[in-house]
Design a protein around this nucleic acid. Structure first.
Lengths: 256, 256
DNA sequence: CCAATTACAAACCGTCGGTCGGTATGTAAT
DNA sequence: ATTACATACCGACCGACGGTTTGTAATTGG
């Protein structure tokens, strides 16, 4: 560089965490107001009162703002959900449902955030953005769920071999159709994808709690709960074919 | 310009309709493969074998490609749906449902198109894109539906004052939550928006046919069909308040 | 056959996301 | 105090992309 005089604003130095937070605040407000594409980095810079260089010192890219915001939101959700879980009584399934209900209630109350959320998330052509965000939330939520599942195993309410996988699956389930579809069904790559998607979709809309659902796991195993008995949640291993049979049976049962 | 020699390619001139079609083909293929943002105008130019000037002669903007693609798709859907309608017997409602079922079946068969579709549509910050596309389809579908509704009036199955409005409402209903929400509920601006959205959403997922649904119309009127009797579709005028009452009642009814 | 219009080419432009060299502000060891 | 090092921050610059403008060859129609 040639004559870089450090003349101009000479802004006050902030603790890095505070600065990051400030930028996130400005960005979130703007995104929620105008959406993703309509907000330029320059807008954020102005709103946050920082230079481009400063910004890119704290964030690696525009998308990074998104993940940052998502992580913050997720943390808030987890706080609500965690207390709901702690206050719940009953077996592991009951506490799991309490946890899920807690996060659902947060979403119900913070509709503006959720709307912005889905608007931006639903977008991508190649899901890299979505993927990144999903990962961000998964990292935070999975450990908690893993605990819950482990409790359920001791408890007798769950019957699974791998707590980690199960936790990830549950996150996927609660996350919106897409992820479930891609991570589970597609990878299982068993038979008709779209039929599977439809089934999953129907299942997922069914009730508020995570019962009454079905899912093909990566390795062709199946998570399954019966619509007759909401209290029972079976997570076990079957072949995809058998899973489809059962799913069809469930559909026929419900349709009549 | 300075030395624009028209030296280079000197491509074969095509009939404008053909050229447009060719560009749309190239663009659609690319978008379906890579998504919206990952495809640049330059990519489309190369794939279609045309220059920038040529492109902007046929289209006004990148978004215009989208509307173009959507219009084509809509036409295809209408063909399927129209024949389904023509082949159906029964009253106007039966034919209306046949029409809708026809379009649904097209969507079920062309999943790749639909996936691309929703990916792109769900995006925008300020819905201008979505709006435009909605308009494009509405222009094509509304007249057909208007016919159907008119038949229903003679027929006795419908009881509406304005065939046009009714047709537009039906399009909105079948179009995905958003539009219904904005066009109907928001404009009605009666009470709690999000609650209304939730109700509508639930209602819309209910069944495949357009029965069993409820909708607030712009002027505060209401389209309503009873869950008890799928064959009856009432479209009439009420106040938004009364509509909410009824909606609540329906919810309570179904929840138990 | 010539003028007007159409279909196209390609240079050009403004904006936006992102980079990079450099400076200002600490803070800790000497 | 001074030095040494880390890190917060600045702002000129860059390439890519969407879109505009200028220029030209083919087509049409009178």
């Amino acid at each position: 560089m040639e004559l870089g005089n450090g003349s101009k604003a000479a802004r006050k130095r902030m603790a890095p965490e505070d600065r990051r937070e400030a930028i996130l605040n400005a960005a979130q407000a703007l995104f929620m107001e105008r959406g993703w594409e309509a907000v330029t980095i320059a807008d954020v810079l102005e709103a946050a009162g920082i230079s481009k260089g400063g910004f890119y010192h704290h964030f690696t890219a525009k998308e990074d703002l998104l993940t940052g915001i998502v992580v913050r939101m997720t943390q808030q959700v987890i706080i609500v959900a965690e207390t709901a879980r702690r206050e719940a009584s009953g077996d592991a399934l009951a506490r799991l449902n309490a946890f899920m209900a807690g996060s659902v209630s947060w979403k119900a109350e913070n509709t503006a955030e959720m709307r912005f959320f889905t608007n931006v998330l639903a977008k991508p052509g190649n899901d890299i953005l979505y993927r990144r965000i999903f990962d961000a939330t998964a990292v935070a939520v999975v450990p908690v769920l893993e605990d819950l599942v482990a409790e359920g195993i001791e408890d007798g309410t769950f019957d699974v071999t791998d707590t980690r996988v199960t936790a990830e699956v549950i996150v996927g389930l609660s996350h919106g159709r897409r992820q479930v579809l891609e991570d589970a069904v597609v990878r299982a790559s068993s038979g008709d994808l779209d039929e599977a998607a439809r089934l999953l979709d129907d299942r997922m809309r069914a009730e508020g709690a995570i019962c009454d659902r079905l899912l093909c796991l990566p390795q062709g195993s199946v998570l399954l709960s019966s619509p007759q008995d909401h209290r029972r949640m079976l997570i076990g291993l079957t072949t995809p074919d058998r899973a489809n049979e059962q799913a069809d049976a469930m559909c026929r049962h419900k349709d009549q």
